[in-house]
Design a protein around this nucleic acid. Sequence first.
DNA 1: GTCTATAGGTGGATAGAC
DNA 2: GTCTATCCACCTATAGAC
Lengths: 207, 207
Amino acid sequence: MAQVTATARNGDTAQRILDIAERLMQVRGYNGFSYADIAETMRLTKASLHYHFPSKSELGRRLMERYTENFLAALGRIDATGADAHEKLQRYVSIYAEVLANKRMCLCGMLAAEYATLPKSVKAEVTRFFDANETWLVGLLQEGKRSKDVSFGGSAIEIARTITASLEGAMMLARAYDDAERFNRAAQRLLADIAGSPSARARQLTT
Amino acid sequence: MAQVTATARNGDTAQRILDIAERLMQVRGYNGFSYADIAETMRLTKASLHYHFPSKSELGRRLMERYTENFLAALGRIDATGADAHEKLQRYVSIYAEVLANKRMCLCGMLAAEYATLPKSVKAEVTRFFDANETWLVGLLQEGKRSKDVSFGGSAIEIARTITASLEGAMMLARAYDDAERFNRAAQRLLADIAGSPSARARQLTT
DNA sequence: GTCTATAGGTGGATAGAC
DNA sequence: GTCTATCCACCTATAGAC
């Protein structure tokens, strides 16, 4: 299954720091955690953390960089399955669902909310993430339309943006209610209505 | 037009504090602003702010309370128009669009992201807001279905939740890209696909 | 690479004069 | 109601020993 969260528990120190920081940032946000929080969980002093990541903005940037890398790798694994477009979209959704299952927000959804307060270098990484998402989804949608696995009207780019934004929003609300099923129901409805398989689309209309 | 943001510029001090704090919180989040920020904008000392709002959590709670009140009032004005369900949904979307036009996030979308770090009393107000949203939308959707102004399959409650979550997500992304049109395009697509008028739905399928 | 110690700043919050 | 003055906890970050 598509796995985004890194688990380099036996990796080097920098990677372990990123693991802890990533979780903290996904749960509490960029402005909601400190070097002290990481230090406490890791049994390492704040000063040592600064050796690996001189500033918080650098930590945030590196974190985003790794997150996007892992996310793109997960998308690559979806591509490698050779499944049809409809199935690939389901797997795309399952990436989000898995993050939520760990009681976390998508790192980029979190940072999009805090966007106004972020260091410039972190902001740039956040939009890079969403741009990469968009590119991947557009390719998938166009391919799916040709092969008639999915059906939609209008531009693929708008559909792609709507899907990502909606999933991020559904994730945010589901986490506030601590109810993963909220996310799953919203996600299935979105896929069926916005870019569903022709059969699913027909079911949705039948009422 | 539906107006949520309060503008009590000539109101009493407490209301003016809430106005400033509201804007700061919508732009920077609960963890991204301080009493000092309010004080600076208002030309009032931090100590004076504490006279009106003893603690930040109390300020946050009162802010959310007022925000929900204003939002529900806006929904009441939509009801009062007597428009059909499709038109009412458009006006619902326009509330969000207007907040975004002021370069702000929906206060509750912002707080949903920061949820894990919020004081309990503020958390409660956030879910109360979304619950009230859901109730209003469900009523509207059921009424619209009866009168055939909108068409959708499945439960109204799921549609309502999906609409709100998707709008919040679209708002978040649009603000990060400083591109209000991103929100508008996503919102129109969502309405058409998820709970559109039968004619709009037909247009969307025609491709 | 990790530590102790600390700098320099800001956070929310309070006491008490006016 | 608003002010000055202050507290103490916490923040990011650095210096320098080991």
